[in-house]
Design a protein around this nucleic acid. Sequence first.
DNA 1: ACTATAGTTCGACATATTTAGAACTATAGA
DNA 2: TCTATAGTTCTAAATATGTCGAACTATAGT
Lengths: 116, 116
Amino acid sequence: MSNYSTKNLDRFSAVFNALSNPHRLQIYTILSGCCTPGTACNMDIITSCCVGDLGSELDIAASTLSHHLKELSHAGLINMQRDGKQVICSVNSEMLNDIRQYFQGNPEVHHESQTG
Amino acid sequence: MSNYSTKNLDRFSAVFNALSNPHRLQIYTILSGCCTPGTACNMDIITSCCVGDLGSELDIAASTLSHHLKELSHAGLINMQRDGKQVICSVNSEMLNDIRQYFQGNPEVHHESQTG
DNA sequence: ACTATAGTTCGACATATTTAGAACTATAGA
DNA sequence: TCTATAGTTCTAAATATGTCGAACTATAGT
């Protein structure tokens, strides 16, 4: 593919790499469900998006969970923000839209959109 | 996520794993472009979906390309069919639709659809 | 300052992935 | 059958990934 930028290729392959691990995909799926994409995870309504709550669903070591969250965050798939003692995780809706566009075959995403 | 089936988790993580390598993502992107999803790759119109043509765009060893195609095929992302000396590759549109539904948050995909 | 809770970083190890070259199979044509 | 073309399988090596436990940092309450 000559008119598909290497930049996008690397960006999306990193995204899919982040989702390629069952634990990370599970985390992302949980976050997709608890936080309506497009809205910041509203903790007044739903209270299950902090790291500890994710951990209680996954049965892996805390250090492993932390590592996976860093991967998802680094790929741009999720946002993490400290709130007191807790760290709140939520889906990055901009990246979710980019992914949707990729699979829709949208030229904005497929052919170098150079907006950044 | 307790109501998200492990089956789907494994299936989709395998799909994303297949797309997590830049070369494989490039292959998939080329195939998405040359073959309109939903139609079998129409070789009367477009002539760039055989293994060799993919290889000429990637600059990797033939054995490596073959390995990557097997991964994509095994994950259900592409179809491969022999036509004489050549092997024609095309996007599996059913899987593409499943992926689209996953990112749309469609419950059919998220919560165990047991149709197979 | 001390303690408890929440999460991260570091170090190590087992396993998986990517890659290429050599040898192989499959098809078509002379 | 012999040859050329198209692609695959096998083997091996370098690199990346997933995982945990121990030690660490950050915040809040006493």
